[in-house]
Design a protein around this nucleic acid. Structure first.
Lengths: 210, 210
DNA sequence: ACCTGAACACCGTTCAAGT
DNA sequence: ACCTGAACACCGTTCAAGT
């Protein structure tokens, strides 16, 4: 992200890409100090500009947060895709893989994850790009479902609906885990992984007797 | 909540139970105008006291929000218990009932639900009462699971772990629904109910072939 | 076009003073 | 014991002025 543009320009004023620098700075502050520390003036200072400069690139604070969240969805999608590239073949194995990827992402980026899905700080409706980015994640889940159906390992039901169920389960596990609501099950190393695997297994096999 | 204490006292200063009045006022502002509108000065004004008065009852704004969230968990637990009283007998039917109750509560109290689980605005660790209140909800789910196991309709696995899976699924459905992330499935009247029923059915029957 | 510095309104929090 | 009113620090946002 920090290209050599910084040096090329004889420090006219500042960045070549302040917009991106602000998103980057916000992302860092979020992961380091939490949502309360994400104030516009500090983000600007961290990016090396005055507190009014961000308004050249974002209409308001909400817009910056929306951009940060969008970047979050892109990263989440990348992490899931990376897992899909590693785990090829068996769709059910892929299911476990992307489940782990989702919960891992939440554990590694709890503040970002909270912002991405909170609906508390920004009006999601006002930022269509956000919705688009989250849809990508949904699509990845649906692809795996479809592959499982083709392979005969997943029942033949509307794959979109099934993807919704899968996503809901994983989202619940992820959020309740980072809010420490699943203790003591998620305690200890690998605890969250075990809970995730168990959850997916239960969804796959069902709670009823076979 | 508004007892006759208000009238008995010759308006010395104000309330007999300002603490409760503040929680009540906050709850109303939250559901009417959202999280952004929940500022301490306005809550105080709504309760009829000066902006400094709340500090006699709450250490800071976070503490008031924690109290509001706790009340939220109590109400959620009540709603679930009410459903359990209506739907007696078959544990699997109860499962569907409490699932619907959870998602309904989220739909009727989206802002409260977001606050209750966000982890964005308050440090949950600092408020043990909150954790206790949320545990009650978990316990209700576990009871139903246990009953299902006794009736032979649910497999014999650690009921706590199963309750965690069930809660995760429902929490995911609830949150993704109120953030409009499950569209178009949740659109229209009864849409969310259908999604919820479908999700529980999938968990019960499993995604694999029988 | 992009950024700065001053200015404004508003909110969380504190504290001395009132009954 | 409970509440008020003034005061303070800080943040989001705006705007005229600078290059």
């Amino acid at each position: 992200m920090n290209t050599d543009m910084d040096r090329k320009r004889p420090k006219t004023y500042h960045h070549g890409d302040l917009r991106n620098a602000l998103i980057q700075a916000g992302l860092e502050m979020l992961s380091e100090s939490g949502a309360a520390a994400l104030d516009l003036r500090k983000v600007a200072r961290k990016a090396g500009v005055s507190h009014a400069a961000p308004y050249r690139h974002f209409a308001d604070k909400q817009s910056l947060i929306a951009a940060i969240n969008e970047e979050g969805f892109h990263r989440l999608a990348e992490q899931i895709q990376s897992t899909l590239r590693e785990v090829t073949g068996d769709a059910v194995e892929q299911l476990y893989g992307i489940a782990r990827a989702y919960v891992h992402f939440a554990q590694e980026n709890p503040w970002l994850m909270r912002e991405m899905f909170s609906g508390l700080t920004i009006e999601r409706e006002a930022f269509p790009g956000l919705h688009q980015a989250s849809k990508t994640v949904f699509m990845l889940y649906m692809e795996v479902i479809k592959r499982g159906q083709e392979q005969g390992s997943i029942i033949d039901v509307d794959p979109g609906a099934l993807a919704g169920v899968l996503w809901s389960l994983l989202h619940g596990v992820a959020m309740l885990t980072i809010e420490h609501q699943m203790r003591p099950y998620t305690d200890g190393p690998g605890g969250a992984d075990n809970v995730t695997r168990f959850a997916v297994q239960m969804l796959y096999e069902g709670l009823s007797h076979k």
